[in-house]
Design a protein around this nucleic acid. Structure first.
Length: 1132
RNA sequence: GCUGAAGUGGUGGAAUUGGUAGACACGCUGGACUUAAAAUCCAGUGAGCAGUAAUGCUCGUGCGGGUUCAAUUCCCGCCUUCAGUACCA
């Protein structure tokens, strides 16, 4: 017989898979149309299946990576069988750190290494037989792609968040509001400490001043922010890129540093990101961690005026400069006003200057973002004189007063007429107010401490305050006596690393500053402490400590002997704080006494607001996201700088293509790598990138040197796939409206707070601006579990640690010998001939064997077979330092130890899918990955198990090759008679597989296929009416073998769009049931009975059965439970 | 600490409107085929006890309770493991 023919008759995965992969690629079998043209899939519903964007790393895939891809591919193929128009694309998140690190080390352009990595990656993917539409491939590092990333950035820059309409709007709507009414009434998400201005003022602002103001409102903005600077990587990192205080990539230390950075105003969307979670079908743990990350807490801001002020320090440290963040913009104005006082102002100033009333006054002084006419800082008293010079501010007096009062100032106001006409009365009033001013504890600093609290109901329980050591007020309020202690404490805490601080949460530490604040209600002085349990980065970096209601405050108070007032009715707080809210009744709290937690909370906030001590506030943990990276391999910003202000390049001229540089490192003067570029300037005349030498700051300007972070490109890619090659839009309206959103998104849970939060943010933004039709980009999301590796170990005997090692040779002892010796509590050498033969052994071993006598060494799993036997020669070649080692064998082989660990190169437990495909085929790999267990679960990989699915495929092949000598044969006769059993098997399988796929329970459907093939083999079924539908069921899982058999059945087109078989319940109708007969709930035997029988008839049958009689031993049962079709239980 | 997920044979796992625990597979044991090995096929395989055997009995889904005719499934209390988060005021 011709050997080739024999080969063809057997299941040959290699030929089959190569053939069909080529066929799919050539015929573009999986190309998706948007929307499908008439006649083709007409009226078919759409379905969008997406895998999380892969970064093409240089080390390639291991078997854990394709798990999610296989699951999504099965689902995509299933949906095609179900008649859907399926979009199932793939691409690369190809900007990123590893390529750049590699470039720094080798000088190779990151684009080049990225290209190579993608090739490897693609080759690996192709071998697994995915049904991707590769015509839609995208790469974030392609200018045709990042053109649109830059475009979105421009849209963000040109947008602000209107809290009234609760959405992002074009910046032009903000400008027109400014022009009409100034900014007082604008309810926007913006920077804190915004300069207040009128429409007139706005018109008077210079262009750059206008730009500066607008920047405070834009959704992406430039600001000096505390960033996480990683010196080792030479870049800033986002919060989610830091794990345990070190960088996620590389594990380098991270420090806090102030830098000018682009930021994204994601905080504008905090509430909507939270609310949106209830509308999407995502795993609860993922939603929980987003909820957690956003960290909404409802409470109140409370202001505590600072009382004490150390002697002799009143005027040092520029304490009199009380201007806000925009002080530099107002200084000029204030100077001008000082030089040109009104008549009334001049008169009054004559009286107030030089401590005329006993206190120092300042004129035309900046308070936050306002210019106060006269102010006594030590008494926090502001005197305003209404005059013509203030006309442009008049309409906003009320707001202005409110804000100043919130800052702790008292504002009194006189008209010009009062000052000029009745100066004595005016001075009288001022004196009265100076005497009444609330500051009783020495002279006031003119400052206050704001705290955020979720428990304003416990405000009467405050007995101290704690500031973060980094708090800016610490140096100002610390008294001379405490100065040394405070300084020392700050130094010590600054030195403690994040890690230490986290590891040690038990130790209570802190120092008294010597300063006091005033309780807003009781007016009692409250000592101000610093302590490192208060975080500078959360809330205001200060807490009002309520020791009776918060355990940390309690511990702190106990530690330092601070009073712990009890403000809870009938609750003992002698041992611990009472943090529970429910059922708590407030006591000893003035107007809050006797109220429940909820009522007290409400009343406290009302009272704070009435008295101007604070206001109700919702606080979010979510910070605005830093968007600049000091890296080369990322999207350049479409930004140049004119007079220090950022300017957007018009969207007509993007992409701004990444320039060539000689070195990928930061420049010598510390600029980002783009600082090395020689052609990196923007000419506003030609609208092109020109040589740096042409920079003249009139028409040619320098371009932004930072690049965008890794999450920029991945925050919108799912939209690009809908229309991947569109040169004029990021995706056409038609495509966006057709595909709308991802229906199924599969990926790892590690993206919970990074990619998935930012992508939702951008999608909401694009939705607000009308660019996309849906607010959430992914309807359903599944996290696939991790696949763990099975590490292998050899055990080297560390007898060298013992006295007088006779021999330097390494000795490896087979695992079970050690195991046996340990379990028998014996000395290793006894009774083992091999070891006894090593002449040195006996002398040195005196103690019983323990695992600690051995060093486990990782061995490459490829050197171990499925029975855990080591390839000793292979091992010696792999690790030449052990080429002379001795191996003590058991039954002639060396058995390794096994342990389940994360798959990683360093543990030598990585299994490459290419090897699996070569040996067993892609279909076997796909089936096995699914068979391992539930998709979402973490599970160990064990290559030996793959033989199960491989023999399943061979059995399946055989079903279709029942001809002579295993040739292909199926019976095409249409007669259905006598097929009862086979039809039952088929329809049972259809039902189960369909249910399983819909529930993403892929492991159980693989079992179902195995059962079906086992049963059909037993039935010797060769009918095409059974075997053909079976192929369609299986084809999503094992597409190659099913295509092959499908074509052998005579089909000339791909199986991929064959209609999924319809489940017919009629074939599963049974006439009898094998009833389990239980006695007291324990099954004893079964009886086959007709399903037509009534309860009474069943009971009669069962009770008369001889087995029942034997089981009862003559006793009469108390009760007989009969559930027809299910069970019989006899209770005795 | 908090949040979430999960604990079932030697292993991966199956079974929940409460109704025959351990499907399917790996591994292991024995057998067939072979000079031999691989491959393939057949049989057995939760533990314990009794019996030559057929078979029977007892225990058994992390632990302790509870509800029920019946609990891996529901309720209460605990333990352990894994993941995320971390002094969030």
């Amino acid at each position: 017989m011709c050997p080739l023919k024999v080969k063809m008759m057997q299941y040959n995965h290699k030929d089959i898979e190569e053939y069909w992969q080529k066929y799919w690629a050539e015929n573009k079998t999986f190309k998706s149309k948007n929307p499908p043209p008439l006649g083709e899939l007409e009226g078919a519903p759409k379905y969008y299946v997406l895998d999380m964007f892969p970064y093409p790393s240089g080390s390639g895939l291991h078997v854990g990576h394709p798990l999610g891809y296989i699951a999504s591919d099965i689902y995509a193929r299933y949906k095609r069988h179900k008649g859907f128009n399926v979009l199932h694309p793939q691409g690369y998140d190809s900007f990123g750190l590893p390529a750049e690190q590699y470039a720094i080390q080798t000088g190779q352009h990151p684009a080049q290494t990225t290209e190579e990595n993608i090739k490897t990656y693609r080759k690996q993917l192709d071998k697994i037989g995915f049904s991707f539409d590769w015509d839609r491939e995208v790469r974030t590092s392609n200018p045709e792609y990042y053109k649109w990333t830059q475009w979105i950035f421009i849209q963000l820059f040109n947008s602000w968040y209107n809290k009234d309409s609760n959405k992002a709007e074009d910046i032009s709507t903000l400008i027109s509001l400014f022009e009409k009414q100034g900014n007082a009434k604008i309810n926007a998400v913006c920077d804190e400490n915004i300069l207040s201005f009128s429409a007139e003022e706005w018109h008077q602002f210079s262009d750059s001043k206008k730009q500066a103001v607008l920047l405070q409102y834009r959704l992406t903005f430039l600001s000096d922010t505390e960033v996480n600077w990683c010196p080792a990587l030479g870049t800033v990192l986002a919060n989610d890129e830091i794990i345990n205080g070190v960088s996620e990539r590389g594990g380098h230390p991270v420090i806090r540093k102030k830098m000018t950075q682009w930021s994204m105003r994601i905080s504008a969307y905090a509430q909507r990101l939270l609310d949106g979670l209830s509308t999407i079908d995502w795993p609860q743990p993922l939603k929980d961690s987003q909820t957690n990350w956003i960290g909404r807490s409802q409470g109140a801001m409370v202001e505590f005026p600072i009382l004490s002020f150390p002697k002799g320090e009143e005027n040092t440290s520029k304490g009199y400069l009380t201007g806000g963040n925009n002080a530099h913009l107002l200084q000029e104005k204030a100077k001008e006003m000082r030089a040109n006082p009104t008549q009334a102002e001049a008169i009054l100033w004559q009286q107030l200057r030089g401590k005329g009333l006993g206190y120092k006054f300042r004129q035309q002084h900046l308070i936050d973002d306002f210019i106060a006419d006269f102010v006594c800082l030590s008494k926090k008293l502001i005197i305003e004189v209404d005059g013509k010079i203030h006309d442009f501010q008049q309409e906003k007096y009320a707001e202005r007063t409110q804000i100043l009062e919130n800052l702790g100032y008292k504002v009194i106001r006189f008209t010009n007429e009062e000052v000029i006409g009745n100066l004595d009365k005016v001075l009288e009033t001022i004196k009265l107010n100076l005497d009444q001013a609330p500051l009783s504890f020495g002279k006031g600093l003119g400052d206050r401490i704001s705290v955020f609290t979720t428990r304003p109901d416990t405000i009467f329980g405050v007995s101290f305050m704690t500031l973060a050591p980094e708090h800016e007020l610490v140096s100002k309020i610390t008294t001379d006596e405490q100065k040394a202690a405070v300084k020392n404490y700050i130094e010590v805490t600054a030195k403690r690393s994040e890690r230490e601080r986290m590891a040690d949460v038990k130790t209570v530490s802190g120092v008294f500053t010597g300063g006091y604040a005033e309780h807003p209600f009781t007016k009692k002085p409250i000592p101000i402490w610093i302590g490192d349990y208060v975080l500078a980065g959360y809330g205001t970096g200060a807490v009002m400590a309520v020791p009776c209601g918060d355990q940390r405050d309690y511990n702190f108070a106990k530690q330092f002997g601070i009073e712990i007032p009890n403000i809870f009715e009938n609750l003992d707080i002698s041992e611990a704080a009472h943090a529970d809210k429910e059922g708590t009744v407030i006591a000893n709290s003035d107007f809050l006494s006797g109220l429940s937690y909820k009522k007290a909370l409400q009343k406290a906030i009302e009272s704070l607001e009435e008295n101007g001590f604070g206001y109700g506030k919702v606080n979010y943990r979510l910070r605005d996201a830093v968007f600049s990276r000091q890296r080369y391999w990322g999207e350049p910003f479409p930004v140049y700088y004119k007079d220090g202000m950022p300017q957007m390049i018009d969207e007509k001229y993007v992409p701004i293509v990444l320039p060539e540089v000689e070195k990928y490192l930061p420049t010598e003067d510390g600029k980002p790598p783009l600082g090395n570029a020689e052609v990196w300037a923007w000419c506003t005349k030609t609208n092109s990138i020109v040589d740096n030498s042409k920079i003249d700051n009139t028409t040619v300007f320098s371009l932004e040197l930072n690049t965008m972070p890794g999450w920029a490109g991945s925050s919108w890619y799912f939209n690009r796939y809908m229309d991947a090659k569109n040169p004029t839009e990021f995706a056409s309206k038609e495509a966006l409206n057709y595909w709308k959103e991802v229906d199924l998104y599969i990926g790892g849970s590690e993206h919970a707070t990074g990619h998935l939060l930012y992508a939702r943010f951008w999608q909401k933004f694009l939705f607000d601006r009308g660019f996309v039709p849906v607010e959430e980009f992914a309807k359903k999301l599944i996290n696939q579990g991790m696949i763990l590796g099975e590490s292998a170990f050899v055990y080297s005997w560390n007898y060298n640690n013992l006295d007088n090692p006779p021999n330097k040779k390494t000795i490896f002892i087979s695992k079970n010998i050690i195991q046996k010796s340990i379990s028998e509590k014996s000395i290793l050498v006894n009774g083992n001939k091999d070891i006894d033969d090593l002449s040195f052994g006996i002398k040195i071993l005196i103690s019983n064997t323990e695992w600690s006598h051995f060093n486990p060494i990782h061995v490459d799993v490829s050197l171990v077979n499925s029975s855990d036997e080591l390839d000793i020669e292979g091992f010696k070649n792999w690790r030449p330092e052990y080429k002379d080692a001795e191996f003590i064998l058991e039954n002639g082989v060396y058995k390794v130890g096994r342990e389940v660990e994360k798959m990683s190169k360093s543990k030598y437990n990585v299994v490459n899918p290419d090897d699996i495909v070569a040996e067993y085929g892609a279909d076997a790999l796909r089936l096995f990955e699914m068979f391992l267990g539930p998709l979402e679960q973490t599970k160990p990989w064990k290559t030996s198990g793959i033989s199960g699915v491989y023999s399943f495929l061979k059995k399946l092949w055989k079903l279709y090759h029942s001809g002579e000598n295993g040739t292909f044969y199926v019976d095409n006769s249409p007669l259905l008679e006598g097929l009862g059993e086979a039809l039952k098997v088929l329809h049972k399988t259809i039902k189960k597989v369909e249910e399983d796929i819909e529930n993403f329970s892929f492991n159980t459907s693989v079992s179902t296929f195995m059962i079906a093939v086992n049963e059909l083999t037993a039935l010797q079924c060769n009918k095409s009416s059974i075997l053909e539908p079976l192929l369609i069921l299986l084809s999503p899982y094992a597409p190659h073998i099913t295509e092959e058999l499908w074509s052998k059945l005579g089909h000339t087109t791909s199986i991929s769009t064959a209609e999924f078989p319809k489940f017919e319940p009629k074939y599963l109708v049974e006439s009898t049931k094998i009833y389990p007969i239980s006695f007291n709930g324990k099954m004893r035997f079964t009886i086959e009975l007709s399903l037509d029988l009534s309860k009474e008839e069943i009971e009669k049958e069962v009770m008369s059965n001889e087995k029942t009689i034997a089981q009862l031993e003559g006793k009469t049962p108390k009760n007989v439970i009969i559930v027809p079709g299910k069970i019989v239980n006899i209770v005795g």
